[in-house]
Design a protein around this nucleic acid. Structure first.
Lengths: 358, 358
DNA sequence: TTGTACGCGTTATCAC
DNA sequence: GTGATAACGCGTACAA
């Protein structure tokens, strides 16, 4: 059953009120109002609301009754202002919540936050550096207790003042620039290596890469993993097989056409993230072309496609969870030097990565 | 370029600070500190911070300089407390941000909120009525300006006191119970009708339904659409073809087996949401069985499966956007009676819905 | 067990 | 154009 007490303080409470129409404009009751109505002092109400000791049982009941009658609800804005100047809210800045990668991160973060009785403000930066900065400032003005972010910009010194004030700031998926702080990344390079080694093991020597912004750390690392794998096998690195800045689906499709039109075309493709993988798969279907493919990031239904897609998978929710756990550890006084965690990746063999050359 | 001014008030600002290590614990500067350091009064600083008139140009510059030096940032907790007792934050309660349906809604909401300079606290109710109530109370204690929710519970009279206080509350995807307030739904019944009519037109008379909780409004309406479509064609409604409470993937798979094992099995299936559709598709693949299928909700890659999936599609982001727009209209004084909006659905023909019986 | 006085950081009022 | 003072709603410290 629901607990009436914490309607106004910490947990839920049923509220016996008949149904009806809404008419706005009434005054929101304050502790002061409750105190007057109950004939006690402000502080006594405060004690009751926060379940503090040293209140007579009769007093407590009387106050509780008034609280219910008036529909009082503690104002956490005022409470936080008085208590510590920071709110029990954390901020999460991601690129786009509609992308499953980020929504899984968000899910992990929110899950942990709920455990700690914190709430999460989620913001979409749309991969825009200026917006990232606007959003962080807006969050800091709201005195979020901490900030988790997948950075879009390439200079995070603007976060330094806030970090110095003690606000934990944790970077997800991409490391900060010009700032030394907690970071949690995927094993981008290692994952890419595994994927490329897999293709090589299946006989491929000309492997095309379709990727996004080469300045984004995760993409750059995946490309580095590609190069390392080739170098290991003494396979020449051919820039003609590379297509960058293909985050837009249309641009990714063009890349497929371009690569397959080459005089000496690739026999396999490596796509560096989920959105690009999907765009490329669409393009290949449109061309009725079959070619070996390994994609970074897993995605739903990959295993049910006519040629099931071999991917480098990882646990995005765990990324969010571990980042949030680290944040709360910092809030609880953990004072270790900046941490750098890595989430492992796994090659999931499904079919597209095992197609032979030609 | 970035604007320095709104680092401390409304927009972003660059912050000239060299890189380095973080050490916490410094005091957060207040307006009082700025005032003292600049040799002006508190109110003058306030004027500068908020770009109010009646400040001499020289004074404004002097204060701005101190603000930058000290790294002052306005405390919006205190600001909101003083101004109107509500924050420039809205709440969004959904079932699960990792589900694309909800993450698209969230994306729409956040997009609109950014336009109005509001931020969004997103909470996952996990389809749990008690948690829904806990979360709304926590949001109200934080004095969110308004609340958007996909309800999980079946009695929302507990929201009445807050609604009476003037906090706009808007229901998405499912209507409230025991409360008359703004609601924005999908055309569940009409969409389901279209889907079932389509199957009937392709010769099906025994159509199995695999759905979730029958008490959830959207699911119930989709089932109602199913029944209406059958009734229109005088096709008997056979309860043996119905499987409810199949939100769990395993339970959905069982449903497929159960239905196909029937003495007089269905020749087509109707799945009432995206998660169930996907679970069912997996089951059918596992059985190497092909059967006509129409699913409610579109999902990524549906068109690339070996038998592309015919679905009843809709614009979840638009659902979120319109709900948010309505919320802000309410905040800006719109005083019309409770609105009831409907987002249209569309039958997307791809293949699975056109398979013949047998 | 209960109450009083004050402060949290900001904005509003009204005086100068 | 500028400043003193009182709020906003609550918690802390200490007194009664």
């Amino acid at each position: 059953m629901l607990n009436e007490r914490d309607f106004y303080s910490d947990e839920p409470g049923s509220f016996g009120e008949s149904e009806g129409r809404i008419d706005a404009g009434k005054m929101r009751p304050t502790m002061q109002n409750v105190a007057k109505a109950a004939g006690v002092s402000l502080k006594t109400v405060s004690r009751v609301v926060n379940n503090e000791p040293n209140v007579g049982e009769d007093t407590r009941e009387k106050v509780s009754k008034v609280i219910e009658e008036l529909g009082f609800r503690r104002n956490d804005l005022a409470r936080n202002l008085r208590q510590g100047q920071i709110s029990t809210t954390i901020g999460l800045i991601i690129e786009d919540i509609a992308n499953p990668f980020y929504s899984n991160i968000a899910h992990g973060v929110e899950k942990v936050a709920q455990r700690y009785h914190y709430m999460v403000i989620i913001c979409n930066s749309e991969e825009n550096a200026q917006r990232e900065q606007e959003l962080s400032n807006a969050l800091f003005r709201r005195r979020v207790a901490g900030l988790l972010m997948v950075p879009a910009s390439h200079d995070h010194s603007y976060l330094l003042p806030e970090a110095r004030l003690g606000t934990p700031i944790i970077f997800l998926d991409r490391p900060p620039d010009h700032l030394d702080t907690d970071t949690i990344l995927l094993d981008n390079r290692g994952g890419a290596r595994k994927g490329i080694e897999h293709l090589i093991a299946h006989g491929h020597r000309r492997i095309g890469v379709i990727g996004g912004d080469p300045l984004v750390h995760s993409g750059a690392e995946r490309l580095a993993g590609y190069r390392e794998a080739l170098a290991d096998r003494s396979i020449p690195y051919d820039e003609a097989l590379l297509r960058s800045n293909r985050d837009e689906p249309l641009r990714a499709q063009e890349a497929v056409h371009e690569l397959l039109m080459l005089a000496d075309p690739p026999t396999a493709l490596f796509t560096t993230n989920n959105r690009i993988s999907i765009a490329v798969i669409r393009a290949l279907y449109g061309m009725k072309r079959q070619i070996a493919l390994v994609g970074f990031d897993d995605f739903e239904l990959a295993e049910l496609l006519p040629v099931p897609i071999t991917v480098i998978a990882h646990d995005a929710a765990a990324l969010g969870e571990q980042a949030a756990e680290l944040l709360f550890a910092r809030l609880h006084g953990d004072d270790l030097p900046p941490q750098h965690l890595v989430i492992p990746t796994e090659l999931v063999v499904r079919g597209s990565g095992e197609l032979p050359p030609e």
